[in-house]
Structure formats: structure tokens, C-alpha cells
Design a protein around this nucleic acid. Structure first.
Lengths: 153, 153
DNA sequence: CAGAATTAGTTGCGCACGCAACCACTTGGG
DNA sequence: CCCAAGTGGTTGCGTGCGCAACTAATTCTG
């Protein structure tokens, strides 16, 4: 008598939350990247660096890596690209000459103030498919999951 | 008189839903991959192929690509790896000799029936940080967002 | 029924990523 | 004060990815 190997142990990828969450994140990211990729020629790491530096002038690559949770090499390369395009500039920190303070250039600031409202509008537009109450419930769930996984802050 | 360029246009990456969603998906995926990577030596594409084939014996690479939303080359390579490890096997379809029907081998089935319960337990354990009501609200939000982005099914 | 268009699947190529090693600089302990 | 340990940042290397081009088989069309 052999063990009955059911083809269905209760896993259907389409209904599996980790899989759905990944698919949703990719979908949202694509929806958003239409703006920063096609209209501004930024990829994801570059966009995140722009977003971070835009609200934390003079921050370090270290800070960007921590707050975006990107690997430091990914940050380093994104910064290098943005510097080539003259959207950001760097100066060694006086206090610690290992550090380099990152700032938007004039052109970078122009892009930032044009880009951010478009991106926020896209977020608003996406979330508009939920009622206030549904949004509250969704965000509450996200926060609990984030904190369960130690992602909060 | 220059335009006041506020450093704060209302974008704080840490509170930006697309960014948080991506971070959460990565976190959940890492939490899960501890199981299928470290204990079974599978990477993400391989795990998805195993999961799909396990519940759809004899399906094609085409079907796997559609239902996991992975690029067909990614599927093709994952299948090749799994075949090398003798976890799956392929046979040309009689009806259409371009197609190759994919099935788990005995070893593959053994892995599948061991792996799936562990993975489902991880999901359950993760979602246990939400009450029934909170989970309902979170899933409802996910469904609406999925359908807004055309990801449903 | 022959040739064009389409589809399943594989492969060559260029690119982005993460790891580990590295350089330059700073900090801490004897 | 000096050397060891630690930190910010960059780079070489191997790997996995998607695109585009390809092969083989099928379907559509006149």
C-alpha cells in the first residue's frame, strides 16, 4: 500500500500570498516606472537615489543604502551614473574624508521638482481604487507584516 | 525672485506605498526562501516551476510561464536545471511535437510533498500576525489593487 | 496542398546585480 | 603615538536576467 501522493496539497501559486505580493509589487513598480524610466531615463536604483537625495541634501551613500535597503554597490553605481549625467554632485565631507556628501545639481533639482509630483500623482491614482476605509485596512495589514518581518521604520 | 525649491514635496520614500510594497515583497520572499533555498537548493524560478508542475502534471513551459508570469527564457532555464537534478522530466507531447510535457520524477514528487507543507506553514505563520479581520481587510485591498493593474486571475 | 505566418522552446549577448576583496581614511587601545 | 580594527566607498568577477534571433513544428490561407 503506497502513500497517496495528492497532486493538491493546498498550494495554488495564484492564491499564495507571498507570490501575489511579489506580483503586485512588480506590477506597481512597472506602473510607476513608466514615468521615471520613459520620461526621465532613470532606472529603479537611480530613482531611489534621486528621491533620497532630494529630501536629504548632503547625505552619504551609506545613508542612501540604509534608507532604501539597497546594497552599497548598487547605490555606488547608481550615484556614478547620476553624476555622469550631472544630476547630482559629490564633495568630500570635511569632518570625515572617507565620506562624500551627495547633492542634487541645478539640473537634478529641476528634474526632482518635476518628477516627484508626477510620481505622487501616480500613487494617488493607484490608491484611488480603494475607499478610505479599504485603504486604512490595507495599510494596517502592511504595517503589521512589516513589523513582523522587522522592516519597520 | 527665485522659485522656492522645497526639499520636501511630500515624498518620503519610507512612506511611499510602491516602495514599501516592494520592500515587503522582498522581505516575505526572503523569509520564505530560507526554506526552499537553504533546505532544498532551489532558487525562486525553480521553486515556482516545482510548485506549478506539482499541481499541474504534464503542463508545458508555456503554461508555467503564463501562470507564474515569468519570462519564457527564465522558465526554460529553471526547467533545464531541475531536469539536470532529475527532479522533473520531459516528454514531447504526442498532439503537438513542439510542446514538451513536464512532470515531477519520483524524487521531485518526494521533494514536493515535503516542501509544500513547510512553505504553507511559513505563510500561515506570517499571516498569523494579523487577526482574521485584519487579514480580510488586507486581502481585500490586494485584490482591488491587482484588479486595477490587470493582474487578477 | 504549398508557402506564409504563428507558436513552443532554446540560445547568444549585453547588462545589472551581489559577493568579496580592496583602498583610503578614521578610531580605539596599549 | 602607533598599530590594529573598523568604516565609507569602489571595483573585479561570476551569475542570472531579458531581449532578440533562431530552430522546429503547426496552423492558416489562397
Amino acid at each position: 500500500m503506497s502513500i497517496r501522493v495528492s497532486s493538491e496539497l493546498g498550494l495554488e501559486l495564484a492564491g499564495f500570498v507571498p507570490y501575489r505580493l511579489n506580483r503586485l509589487a512588480v506590477g506597481v513598480s512597472n506602473h510607476l516606472s513608466d514615468i521615471y524610466r520613459e520620461r526621465f531615463g532613470l532606472d529603479v536604483p537611480e530613482w531611489r537615489v534621486m528621491a533620497t537625495v532630494g529630501s536629504r541634501h548632503g547625505c552619504t551613500a551609506q545613508h542612501i543604502a540604509e534608507s532604501t535597503r539597497m546594497h552599497k554597490t548598487r547605490v555606488s553605481r547608481a550615484i556614478a551614473h547620476l553624476e555622469e549625467r550631472e544630476l547630482i554632485e559629490r564633495a568630500s565631507s570635511a569632518a570625515d574624508r572617507r565620506e562624500r556628501e551627495v547633492r542634487l545639481t541645478k539640473a537634478g533639482r529641476r528634474m526632482y521638482v518635476e518628477l516627484v509630483p508626477l510620481v505622487l500623482e501616480r500613487e494617488r491614482e493607484l490608491l484611488a481604487c480603494l475607499t478610505k476605509e479599504q485603504l486604512r485596512g490595507f495599510l494596517a495589514g502592511m504595517e503589521l507584516l512589516e513589523s513582523f518581518l522587522g522592516l519597520q521604520e
